[in-house]
């Protein structure tokens, strides 16, 4: 007998769509400002065709990696294997062409399938064992990492499909094709979460698993699908690496894990699940990319880049927090 009427407070939630819109605007402004400062202080070096192309060419992978992490964040999970999986899928793709002699399109499909399959395994492990996704992906990450070196050793694969490489390094109307591919993927992901029933269910499960369950949504299925999508996107990122770089070795992807978190977090995606922002994630990836560019342009000692990236991540999050209307609410 404790049916005490709870003191009903007016909900003081921040308005999330507004909040995200605010975050996205802030990020866009930050990106533009950063670019203008870069252009001005380097006497226009970043406006020249070559540099501009490079900026967007090497934005593609971080964007897709960020979306891969965002997919699992949508259900309140994390995928620690994103970077390693990208590297692994790149290896698989290159190996299929070089060692197995498959045509490029089959190798690409194989890499995507590998990513999706490993994502599926992650998801099933999470659901069937009820072990936290953080732990499961930590374990599978380590296993894949071991596989990468165990199977391929320190081999470098190169000289595979010239058509794939020239496609990956080429551009359409001056826009790099890999970047176009990343934008297309981003649009698909946005569509998935916005208009496809399955994508909506992921957000429902992530936002309120109890209500989702009582509404007939299977939270288990949401978890599996989220991990699968995450793996698939990591596979796509792996393919991009293959097409873009022309040679692949076992170290690829090692430095992608933290950026994969940085982009969605700066982009306004809720760590607890239920709220995603594709545009915010992509803009955040761009800002991080600009830091790299600045390092190259100013000839900053590369040893200091991590420090700068860290500071920019913290700064960008702080700025979006401060600009957020009615800060201090949940979550």
């Amino acid at each position: 007998m404790t049916t005490l009427t709870p003191p009903e407070r007016r909900p003081r939630l921040p308005r999330l769509p507004e909040r995200i819109a605010g975050t996205e605007t802030t990020l866009a402004a930050l990106a533009v400002a950063g670019y203008v400062v870069l252009a001005a202080t380097t006497h226009g070096a970043v406006v020249s065709g070559g540099t501009l192309t490079a900026i967007f060419q090497f934005l593609a992978v971080p964007m897709v990696i960020g979306l891969s992490q965002m997919a699992v964040l949508s259900v309140g999970q994390m995928n620690l294997g994103v970077g390693v999986l990208t590297g692994f899928c790149a290896m698989v793709c290159a190996w299929l062409m070089v060692a197995a002699g498959l045509p490029a399109w089959l190798a690409v499909a194989g890499a995507l399938l590998t990513g999706a399959a490993i994502g599926l395994v992650n998801g099933l492990l999470v659901v069937l064992t009820r072990i936290n996704g953080f732990v499961v992906t930590l374990a599978t990450m380590t296993i894949i990492d071991g596989l990468r070196y165990g199977v391929h050793g320190t081999a470098t694969y190169q000289g595979y499909s010239h058509r794939l490489v020239s496609l990956g390094q080429g551009s359409v109307l001056g826009v790099p094709t890999v970047f176009l591919a990343a934008v297309a993927i981003a649009i698909l992901v946005a569509f998935f979460f916005r208009s496809v029933p399955l994508g909506r269910r992921l957000l429902a499960s992530g936002g309120n698993p109890l209500a989702a369950r009582l509404s007939g949504v299977s939270n288990d299925r949401s978890l599996v699908v989220a991990h699968l999508v995450s793996g698939l996107l990591a596979g796509a990122a792996g393919v991009m690496v293959v097409a873009l770089s022309g040679s692949v070795n076992a170290t690829i992807g090692d430095d992608l894990l933290l950026p994969s978190f940085a982009a969605p977090i700066i982009g306004g995606v809720a760590l607890a699940g239920g709220v995603v922002s594709v545009l915010g994630t992509c803009l955040a990836a761009l800002i991080i990319r600009l830091v790299d560019v600045a390092q190259a342009q100013y000839s900053i000692n590369p040893d200091w880049v991590d420090l700068i990236v860290g500071a920019v991540v913290l700064g960008a999050v702080l700025i979006t927090q401060l600009r957020r209307p009615r800060a201090g609410g949940t979550p």
Binding site: P11, L13, L16, P17, L203, A204, G207, N208, L210, A211, A212, L214, A270, G274, V275
Partner: peptide, 14 residues
């Protein structure tokens, strides 16, 4: 559900 906020609605969704 009796627990409106916890189980009845998705507070952060339109």
């Amino acid at each position: 559900s009796e627990n409106r906020k916890e189980e009845g609605v998705f507070l952060q969704q339109p």
